[in-house]
Design a protein around this nucleic acid. Structure first.
Length: 440
RNA sequence: GUGGGUGUAGCGUAGUUGGUUAUCGCGCCAGAUUGUGGCUCUGGAGGUCGAGGGUUCGACUCCCUCCACCCACCCCA
């Protein structure tokens, strides 16, 4: 197979058979966010590289080795967005959205790009649903954002997902902690794995996350940020937890959560699924009180999260969750002969104008093949239109599932279909009603 | 970037000391009395056996290189 018939590494096509799942997930997420006051924002796929250096952080892996960066023809350094927060923050500043009503709540559905080696739950192009809440310093904002993520997951029927939260402090208390942590690991540096010895200088907090057994054991006894929080951070975290408790949102404080993006402060959280492979984080986010300042704005405490659509779909797939499928073609018009082809073409257009989903023959196939096609696409009704029908105006409406045939006049077709649809809807409501009665 | 596993039609597969035109199932297309789908039967199309090179009279099969996919490390959504 030649290169042009192969999508680039780490990318995925969403095929017609699956796109309804994406639409369902996306609409659900946007809908829940709207209930929380979030409005959609769309920002460009690419930004000035500088934006990500400043926000995500120059020492992070994302920036150091995973960005799709290139020079454009005007010799600007451009980068395909590796995450969604930076672009949203940039747009906020560029359009002075923070001058309007605060907090400023936005959400988005975006593709993100990271040059990584693909594996289960990890792609080079992936999609994220994200929210950002700008200008909300209070702990209830943290809880609300977490609650929003939780509600998106529960509305979709996701199960087996756990919420982990932590506080990683602020610029006032973190340096003290980092120094303490570094001293602790340095004392036992000989035992650490090679990568963790490198991390000692770059970012000792990463060692807490190491999966190697020895490091893990050493890390287990390491001082944790929580114990070094300044009074403000501690109070903030306590109140976040109090809100979550009050809302009965179950969580686990996981002192080892360390986010890999530099802008995070105070609250960080992850929703972790047991249905995924090693990439278990379905949703990750937290507070970034310093980011807007870092990008040249005023101090504007903010927070948000990103949710991986592919991972979300993997979880739903794993638990065999049902998702509402879009309605199938209502009617297939099977023309016999040239006169009928023209008539069906015209009839189909009229019916579609009335909101009926109709298909008719485009291939010149025989009747049998057309019936097969109608069956395959799941058409609910079929009408064969030949010279007889055109001459008399009478036709037979066949219901595919039951084989039941109804005689009708072609010029009453729309009304008939409308009534049938209405009957179905009523029947559905009756079913729903009896179900409710049965369940008490 | 580092490991491990896997590559035969759209999908799932047979091909086991290298030996004619590379299996089979599903799917697709067409037929089985003139205008009716699902079941059955018959026929047909579709493959540079992941790619390139090497060994050999002869390679899907053996050797080398590369590529892709899957999984893990790392990192994160």
């Amino acid at each position: 197979m030649g290169l042009i018939t192969k999508a680039p590494r780490g990318t995925q096509d969403v095929l017609p058979a699956d796109s309804y799942k994406w639409q369902y997930v996306e609409q659900t997420a946007i809908g829940v966010a709207r209930d929380f006051g979030y409005e959609e924002m769309r920002t460009p796929v690419f930004e000035h590289t500088e934006l990500f250096l400043r926000s995500v952080g120059e020492t992070t892996d994302v920036v150091q080795k995973e960005m799709y960066t290139f020079q454009d023809k005007g010799d600007r350094s451009i980068t395909l967005r590796p995450e969604g927060t930076a672009g949203a923050a940039r747009a906020l500043l560029e359009h002075s959205l923070h001058a309007g009503a605060l907090p400023m709540k936005v959400c988005y559905l975006t593709s993100c790009y990271r040059y990584e080696k693909p594996q289960a739950g990890r792609l080079r192009e992936f999609h994220q649903f994200g929210v950002e809440c700008f200008g909300a310093a209070e702990p209830q904002a943290d809880a609300e954002v977490i609650g929003l993520a939780h509600m998106v997951l529960s509305t979709l029927g996701v199960t087996g997902v756990k919420l982990h939260i932590n506080s990683i402090g602020c610029p006032h208390c973190r340096p003290t902690y980092t120094a303490t942590l570094k001293a602790y690991f340095e004392a036992r540096s000989a035992e650490l794995c090679e990568t963790c010895r490198d991390r000692l200088d770059r970012n000792p907090m990463r060692i807490l996350d190491c999966k190697s057994p020895v490091c893990h054991e050493i890390a287990a006894g390491a001082p944790v940020m929580i114990d070094y929080l300044c009074d403000d951070c501690k109070t903030h975290f306590d109140r976040v937890k109090a809100c979550l408790d009050a809302a009965q949102l179950p969580y686990e404080v996981d002192v080892h959560i360390v986010r890999g993006l530099d802008y995070y402060t105070r609250t960080v959280f992850e929703f972790v699924s047991d249905a995924l492979g090693a990439q278990a984080v379905v949703c990750g986010g937290g507070r970034y009180d310093g980011l807007i300042e870092e990008l040249g704005g005023n101090h504007l405490p903010s927070l948000g999260f990103g949710m991986g659509i592919e991972r979300l779909l993997m979880v739903l797939e794993a638990q065999e969750a049902s998702m509402p499928e879009p309605p199938r073609t209502e009617l297939y018009l099977a023309p016999m002969g040239e006169r009928a082809v023209t008539a069906c073409f015209e009839m189909a257009l009229r019916l579609r104008e009335g909101g009926v989903s109709v298909q008719t023959d485009l291939t010149g196939r025989g009747l049998k093949a057309q019936m097969k096609y109608a069956d395959k696409i799941g058409a609910r009704f079929v009408i064969v239109v030949g010279d007889d029908e055109l001459d008399t105006g009478k036709a037979v409406l066949k219901e595919m599932e039951t084989g039941e045939q109804t005689e009708l006049m072609l010029d009453e077709l729309y009304t008939t279909l409308y009534n049938k649809a209405l009957d179905r809807e009523l029947a559905g409501m009756t079913d729903l009603f009896s179900q409710v009665v049965e369940e008490g």
